[in-house]
Write a protein that binds this DNA or RNA. Structure first.
Length: 805
DNA sequence: TTTAGTACACTTTTT
DNA sequence: GTGTACTAAA
């Protein structure tokens, strides 16, 4: 707030520890900062920027800082502004996300790429992308059940992030791999259509920018000269393309040659990357934390600074984090330490079901708030689907909560519709936007007409927009349809004109998109509560536009912003309770943290179960979650969990086992897993217990049928445990490190098939076991086969094959 | 062509 | 449990 403004540039060094200070003052050459959780990373980056400007005389516009989220960028901007407040300055450093940086570069120079793109290109979000893919899949004559748009999208995205275009992807397809060959064809069509619509998807924003910088020496040199001090935050989450992009800016023409940098290159230049490989949690999105591990090889003169003092959490919380992450094999050897107090124990509770878990959490929050009314709490879960229970519990308790993720404002249908109109106003050739609103509100242009337009557009080889004009001029369809098309064309044309003549009146244009299109009228006519809510949302959109207008934004900026905002950006730090996924929590901190749903197959997620790398990523996610906590940490799991609306038994997460049990206090009512686990005092016993709690253990399905919640310290279970323990250890001598192969399970006694597992059926293909009734080989299984629905079958007749993954 | 009702598939994490 | 996609009727 009221910081003293001394003119002494060394201001930025006071209050920093020696390592932080060195990170701030190392202003030349490559610099790798390994910053553990809570080690003051953002502080270092912001002070470094201030130091560059104030002490080294660097011009602000020569500084670039890249982050992954808008929120992180916004926060960083704010903090830098605060540091520099009251000092005369010429410009501002650019603090931006990778994606907005790319949009900025492309809006300026994309035409130099020579691929037919113009500067008014549209950005397709995931939803637009999938619509387009669905159309491609249909047009190529594939069954959209066997080739789901979602799956194709992730395959294409992965390919793009590996740097492959459709031809290369096709070339890498082995003969006979029909599925991949089909995807390759969809990929090619998709790329053509994107280009025809003058549209770029999220991946393209990065890829095209890299291509542009490779292709145009002029553009590359411009940014190379402009940004002499480049910083990348959360560097462990960088993917190959993002890394290539930053190197292009940092190294200029030397980036393409792959040779060494000339003597004196770093004079007046720096490249500073900040990250923590223990917090790499975006591997599934193409991020590769090996980039951070290999940074010193790419830049041999790198100075490495480790920030290992944690200023956030109590000793006990930190000890828990260190212990859990120590189970990972791929990491730098470092350990966070803290000079804070021991703090309280880590609390743990086993609950009966998801509802009880939510009630417990909310009850505890209320308890804490009674003692400390200003405490901020966070509930962290693995999947968004878990949020509903906590939302309801909060609402019932009258707690003000802040839900991050799920449905964001810009994802609402009515908002997307209006955005689509605005996109058309900028670029009528955007066929996805056109298809979205051509008949909303309904104006008599139905499925047949739309299909007709699509067919003709393909025949003529022009955009849907142009096709509409051709149909009108040549009267190719019945008069009623032609007049409907005419009125649609009229609406869009007016919007386009409005955009051109009233470029500065952003809110007016948005209003026109709501009113002149008939959208508002149709909603009002509906006269339902839902329509009322939608109207309110649109009002909100107009307000947002008015605000943006005051900031001096034009329609294009407004649309870019709408396309690039993410759910995490809506996070409001003032709320008492924040509900979000562990992914969304990265970079944030809370005095009171609940990690909920610590159950096998949920966390770690079932998809990560078989794969060591993915399992380690889940564990890093656990580490991220633990290190969000400043003072109090609670861990919960429930014994039952609803999956697909079906109640399934849940086993405690293996991660629970990895916590230092002596630091945990059990708050469960009655018998709990922890009490049972504490009896297993030796390491061997724990290992055995871990094997027991992991869901692949044969025999554990025995109880699933009449599941009542496992009571771990009943005399029965203890006997069962010790009996099995001996057996398990013996088994382990032989089966350690051996993989279970796809053996038809009906042969093996006991089967071991239980809910949550994937199986293959001769006729229906892959399926997910939803329920098991009865024992042994006569057990009746309920299995969900995508494309065929839910089937019931007897295990011994079904001839099911257990799937590795 | 539109709308209402029903079946059905779906859930990892997101710029 | 929930959102979407298909079908039947107006």
């Amino acid at each position: 707030m009221n910081q003293t403004m001394s003119p002494n540039p060394d201001d930025y060094l006071s209050g920093l520890n020696p390592q932080q200070r060195e990170a701030v003052t190392s202003t030349e050459g490559p610099l790798l900062i390994l910053a553990g959780a809570g080690s003051g990373k953002t502080r270092v980056i912001t002070h470094r920027i201030a130091h560059l400007i104030e002490a080294c005389g660097v011009r602000p516009e020569h500084i670039l800082a890249v982050t992954f989220t808008n929120k992180a960028a916004g926060e960083m901007k704010e903090r830098v502004e605060k540091l520099l407040a009251g000092r005369p300055r010429t410009g501002s450093p650019l603090i931006s996300t990778f994606h907005s940086l790319c949009v900025r570069i492309l809006r300026r120079d994309i035409e130099k790429l020579g691929r037919g793109y113009t500067r008014s290109f549209t950005i397709y979000d995931t939803d637009d992308q999938q619509r387009l893919l669905r159309a491609c899949i249909k047009d190529l004559g594939y069954d959209d059940k066997q080739l789901a748009a979602r799956a194709v999208q992730s395959a294409i995205s992965a390919a793009k992030n590996r740097g492959e275009d459709p031809e290369l992807y096709k070339a890498k397809t082995e003969y006979g791999d029909e599925r991949r060959a089909a995807i390759a064809r969809v990929f090619a069509t998709y790329e053509q259509r994107l280009a025809a619509s003058n549209a770029l998807d999220f991946d393209d924003l990065l890829i095209r920018t890299v291509q542009l910088l490779r292709h145009s020496a002029e553009t590359r040199e411009y940014y190379h000269q402009r940004f002499r001090h480049v910083m990348v935050d959360e560097f462990q989450d960088t993917n190959g393309i993002q890394y290539a992009l930053t190197r292009m800016i940092v190294e200029g023409k030397y980036a393409t040659g792959g040779g060494t940098l000339p003597e004196g290159f770093w004079q007046g230049r720096s490249f500073c990357v900040v990250g923590d490989e223990s917090q790499a949690i975006y591997g599934w999105r193409g991020s590769d934390f090996k980039i951070i591990l290999g940074f010193q090889t790419d830049f041999p003169r790198t100075k490495v600074i480790r920030l290992e003092e944690n200023y956030r959490s109590t000793k006990r919380i930190l000890e828990a984090a260190n212990r859990v992450i120590s189970h990972n094999s791929q990491r730098f050897d470092k350990k966070l330490f803290s000079n804070a107090g021991d703090g309280e124990k880590v609390y743990y509770a086993q609950l009966y079901d998801g509802e009880a878990e939510a009630r417990f959490v909310v009850g505890k929050i209320e308890e804490h708030l009674r003692r400390e009314p200003d405490l901020r709490a966070a509930v962290l879960y693995r999947t968004n689907a878990q949020s509903r229970l906590f939302e309801e519990a909060c609402r019932r308790a009258g707690l003000r909560y802040n839900l991050v993720g799920g449905f964001s404002f810009y994802e609402r249908a009515e908002v997307k519709d209006i955005i689509a109109y605005l996109k058309l106003a900028m670029n009528p050739h955007d066929s996805i936007a056109l298809a979205r609103v051509i008949n909303s509100p309904t104006r008599g242009i139905g499925k047949t007409t739309i299909e007709d337009i699509e067919r003709r557009a393909k025949d003529f080889g022009v955009s849907h927009w142009e096709t509409i004009s051709i149909i009108i001029e040549q009267n190719l369809l019945p008069p009623r349809t032609v007049s409907a098309l005419k009125s649609f064309r009229e609406i869009i044309t007016r919007l386009v004109e409005k955009t051109e003549t009233e470029a500065e009146r952003l809110s007016e244009i948005v209003k026109a998109a709501v009113i002149d299109t008939g959208y508002e009228r149709a909603l009002k006519a509906e006269n339902t509560e839902e329509a009322e809510a939608r109207l309110l949302n649109l009002e909100e959109l107009v307000n947002a536009a008015a605000e943006a207008e005051e900031q001096g934004e034009a329609l294009r900026d407004f649309l870019d912003h709408a396309a690039l905002v993410s759910d995490t950006d809506e996070y409001n730090a003032a709320a008492q309770v924040t509900l979000m996924t562990m992914h969304a929590a990265k970079g944030l901190e809370f005095p009171l943290v609940f990690i909920v749903g610590l159950e096998e197959n949920l966390f770690p997620h079932s998809r990560a179960r078989e794969n060591q790398n993915e399992l380690e990523e889940e564990r890093r996610l656990c580490y991220v979650a633990i290190t969000r906590a400043e003072q109090y940490l609670y861990l919960t799991h429930s014994m039952k969990r609803r999956v697909y609306g079906e109640e399934l038994p849940a086993d405690p997460s293996r991660f629970l086992m990895e916590f230092p049990l002596e630091l945990i206090e059990d708050l469960s009512r009655g018998p709990s897993w922890l009490r049972f686990a504490s009896k297993a005092s030796t390491v061997e016993n724990r290992e055995a217990l871990r094997a027991l709690t992991s869901s692949s253990t044969p025999g554990s399905s025995k109880r699933a049928g009449s599941y009542q919640g496992r009571t771990y310290d009943s005399a029965d279970s203890v006997r069962e445990f010790f009996a099995r323990q001996g057996k398990k250890i013996e088994e382990d001598k032989f089966s350690d490190h051996t993989v279970e192969y796809d053996e038809p399970v009906s042969k093996s006694k006991g089967g071991g098939l239980k809910p949550g597992m994937r199986v293959r059926h001769a006729k229906y293909g892959q399926g997910l076991i939803v329920r098991r009734e009865g024992d042994g080989e006569n057990a009746k299984l309920t299995i969900n086969f995508p494309g065929y629905g839910t089937k019931k079958m007897i295990e011994k007749f079904a001839g099911l094959e257990k799937l590795g993954r």
